[in-house]
Structure formats: structure tokens, C-alpha cells
Design a protein around this nucleic acid. Structure first.
Lengths: 211, 211
DNA sequence: AAACCTCGTTTCCAATAGTGAACAAGGACA
DNA sequence: TGTCCTTGTTCACTATTGGAAACGAGGTTT
């Protein structure tokens, strides 16, 4: 009768991982979305190609839709599955944090070739890592190997002039105010080409958990 | 016959969003996972409570599993749905891209209060959005409402002096070289406090799919 | 090589999903 | 009030899924 008629299977499921099967009020969710858009069952039927009756039963948890039906739903409603499944939108969105760094008050990390100044290091869980770098290197030869890390990097020259060496491209000259965005898994290295050391601002994405 | 028998529905689907229905080789994916763990169909049957035969048919795209079956699959296999759906785990790690923007050659987006210059707009799929902004506003009152968007934002003052108003904090003054990192879902607004318009560099995280 | 496993596929049937039509239950309109 | 019209639910029926058992292809043991 119900959509979750499991009879004997329930026993076997016990061998599985989660003892309690998430109810996953899918129907409820669909209805929510439908009403939020002020659509009637007929409208959704048009959009999804599913019968009005079918939609009604899905919304009332009277049937467990076929996966192909779910597909029709998701691209009929113009949403994606995660959206359909995350029942509440309780995104527990961390918000309201902030972290100020006054000029010259970042955390210093000197290396032979660069002098890094980490910029917002009070904040622990952040998606970007900003830092100011004084480029000491004057020749590509000073690097023993490519600098390389997961994610992406944005870089803007604040002072002076640099030359950006990358693994797959010809070297590039950048002056004060120029900026570049690149995949940082591609080997890269910076040298100053101006008299004084150049200064650049970089922002890297954090190695995230999506992998 | 096949799992993707759509007949007339295809027409109506045209009214929807995506014209091409993602094949979504679900069966293929399941098999992949099964083999990766060196499980036999019987093993998976035990874990999921689905019959061997059913699993076989699912793997060979001979049937479109019921949503309840999919549920049994995901918690039987100990994975989550996104994982099941992202077809290849080869994240096709994009790498080797780059996008140079010379000073003053970004894409201009003027507003009453700000003058934005998008910085690396050639690149489509990127995790950060960098832009330079000339702050025209001189008073908080010029904003009709908080600026607010998902994700996080990093900001450094390049020229002049600004005052940063945020929803949950007292206003903050920032001078040339100062920087700040904050959750951009928190309402925020910038005004110039120097004689000339201030210039700031911002980098936002993209509204990602991790939700 | 015959008997016996194990694994994946296929077959057949019962259970259930999906459909169109019929059915209330409101609203609008005359 | 009575006649539409629209909306969501229920019904009767067909199409499809899901399960137990049969099957066929290797592999192992004897």
C-alpha cells in the first residue's frame, strides 16, 4: 500500500549500513516546490510529461516514483537532485564572520624566492586563501621545481613588474594593475623584472572536499 | 523496453528546461562501484536487500529502478546520491587554463554606487570571481538595501580610503593596503571616505554546487 | 570428465508504478 | 441557482518493476 512496503526485505536491510531508512519526504518536497512556483498539477504535468494522477500520488507518498520519473521531475521542475533531496533548506550557512588585516600586519612566511604575507589568518574555515607576496626571485633558475597546488589562483600585481612562468605557456609579463587567473595545479613561478622587488596579491581556492 | 522509453513525453519535455536528457548511466555507475569494491551481485544483494536479478537488470539498464530501490542502493553501498550520479569520478580536473587581464581591460559593470570591473571573465568555470571596484558612494544612505550574496568575499583597498558597513558589526575604516575577509551573505556596503573615489579589489567565491 | 561451485543473466510471475477517465469540490459567471 | 471551468483525488487498467528460480558459462575439485 504505502510507498515503503518492504516486508521481508527489511530483515536483509538490517545487514546494510543505516538501520533506519531516511523517510525522505520526497512527495512533500515536490509539492513544496510546485506551490512555491504557483504551479498546478496540470502545469507540472506539462513540464514533466508525467500524468496528473501520477504527480498527485507522488506528492502524497502513495507511490515510490521510478528513477526515470524522478529524472523527468528534476528537469521538468528545473531543479537538480540535491535540491530535491535536501528536505529543509537548513544550509547551516556560516555567516557573519569577518577578519580584518591592516596593511603590513599579516602573517609572514619567508622563503628563498618569495616573501609571503598571509592576510586573513584568523578565520579558520574559509574557501579562499589571500596573501600578499613580495617577489624576491630574479631568475627562473632560482626555482628548483614548479610551484604547484590544487585549485585555482587569482593574482594581481600591486607594485613593480613580474614575469610569470607556467608549465604550459610561454612566460608572461605583468605590470602594476595587471591580473591573471589560472589553475594552480599547473606548475608556476614568479620573478621580479623591475628594479625593486615586485609585490603581488594572490588568492587561492582551498583544496576542497568535493574531490 | 529500455529504461529511457519516453515516447510522447519527449515533446512535452521540450517545454521544460534542458532539451537533452542526460543519459545518466546509472547502471554503469553502480557496476563501477560494485567492482571497485570487489563485490559480487550477491554481496550487493545482501547489502541492499535487492534481488540479484534486480541488480543485474539495473546494471544493464534494463529497468529504471524505483526510487525506493535507489535509496536501498545508496545506503547499501554506503554512498550518497551525488556520488551515485556524478557519472565518472574522473573529475576531469580542469587544469592548465589561464586568463590574463591587463590593467583597465576588464569588463565594466557600472551601478549607481559602484563601478565594477570584472577581471578574468574569459574563464567560464571558475571558483572565484575577481573584480576591481571604484567606490562612488559617499554615504551609506545611497544604498537602498544591503548587498548580499552567497559565499565569501575577500577585499583589499588599492587606493583611497573606505568605510565598510556590515549587518552585524560596527562600520570599519580601511585604508590603502588594508584587507578584510567576510561572509558575503551578511549584508555589506562600501563608501569612499577619501576625496577621490576609492578603488578596491574583491574576490568572491562562486555559489558552488556543494550546497 | 563428471559433479559441484559461483557468478551473472534470463525467465516467469506477482507486486507496483504510470496513465487516462471518471469523480468530487470549489470558483467564476451569467 | 445552474452551468461552466479548474484543481486535486480516486478508479480501472496497462506497463513496468522486483523477486525466486531456472539457466548457462567458467572454474575447481575429485
Amino acid at each position: 500500500m504505502t510507498a515503503t512496503t518492504d516486508q521481508g526485505a527489511a530483515l536483509r536491510i538490517a545487514a546494510g549500513r543505516k538501520p533506519f531508512v531516511e523517510p525522505l519526504r520526497l512527495g512533500e518536497r515536490v509539492k513544496e516546490i510546485r506551490l512555491a512556483n504557483q504551479w498546478t498539477l496540470e502545469d507540472v504535468s506539462q513540464r514533466t510529461g508525467l500524468a496528473r494522477s501520477t504527480l498527485s500520488k507522488i506528492e502524497n507518498d502513495q507511490i515510490s516514483p521510478t528513477f526515470s520519473a524522478v529524472q523527468k521531475l528534476i528537469d521538468g521542475l528545473g531543479i537538480d537532485l540535491p535540491q530535491l533531496l535536501s528536505p529543509p533548506k537548513v544550509q547551516t550557512r556560516t555567516m557573519g564572520r569577518r577578519d580584518l588585516t591592516r596593511r603590513g600586519h599579516g602573517e609572514l612566511h619567508p622563503t628563498p624566492t618569495y616573501e609571503h604575507e598571509l592576510l586573513s589568518c584568523e578565520l579558520a574555515q574559509k574557501r579562499m586563501i589571500p596573501f600578499k607576496t613580495i617577489v624576491r626571485a630574479r631568475a627562473f633558475e632560482e626555482f628548483t621545481e614548479w610551484v604547484r597546488h590544487d585549485g585555482e589562483e587569482f593574482l594581481m600585481v600591486l607594485e613593480g613588474e613580474i614575469r610569470l612562468y607556467t608549465e604550459y605557456y610561454e612566460p608572461l609579463s605583468l605590470s602594476d594593475g595587471d591580473s591573471i587567473y589560472f589553475d594552480s595545479a599547473m606548475g608556476h613561478a614568479l620573478v621580479s623584472t623591475s628594479e625593486a622587488d615586485a609585490v603581488v596579491l594572490s588568492v587561492c581556492t582551498r583544496g576542497d572536499g568535493t574531490s
